[in-house]
């Protein structure tokens, strides 16, 4: 019970791991591209949570700086991913990942 009530770094790490797992499940099992992209955001967020928790643990700010870089990366990824999605939808009229099984059409 005592371990439950004192929030240590480990608690944040476990939360991050759970979020990471949810993201992985989403990426591996869903068909809809939008949801897959959102699951990737979940994964990136889990990583960010770990980074910030470690930054608090070590008392430095390097983890937070890295988290900001990850957020920047996520923005770039979302923009390009959604751009690809729109091009894809325009050509194939579908948003399912497992229907992209041709290199050229």
């Amino acid at each position: 019970m005592d371990a439950m009530l004192h929030i240590s770094t480990l608690h944040y790490l476990v939360l991050g791991a759970a979020l990471f797992l949810l993201g992985v499940i989403g990426v591996l099992t869903r068909r809809n591209v939008v949801v897959v992209l959102m699951s990737i955001e979940l994964i990136l967020n889990a990583v960010n949570l770990n980074l910030v928790a470690f930054s608090r643990y070590w008392g430095g700010l390097h983890g937070q700086v890295f988290a900001i870089f990850v957020i920047t990366d996520a923005a770039a990824e979302a923009a390009v991913g959604l751009g690809i999605l729109i091009a894809f939808f325009r050509n194939k009229e579908t948003v399912n990942v497992d229907e992209v099984n041709l290199l050229k059409w």
Binding site: F69, T72, D73, A75, A76, E77, A79, V80, L82, G83, I84, I86, A87
Partner: peptide, 16 residues
């Protein structure tokens, strides 16, 4: 990171 964002902007425009 700023270069990455520039690439992403161009990529998104080209794609969409």
């Amino acid at each position: 990171a700023s270069l990455l964002l520039l690439v992403a902007i161009i990529g998104a425009v080209v794609m969409a």
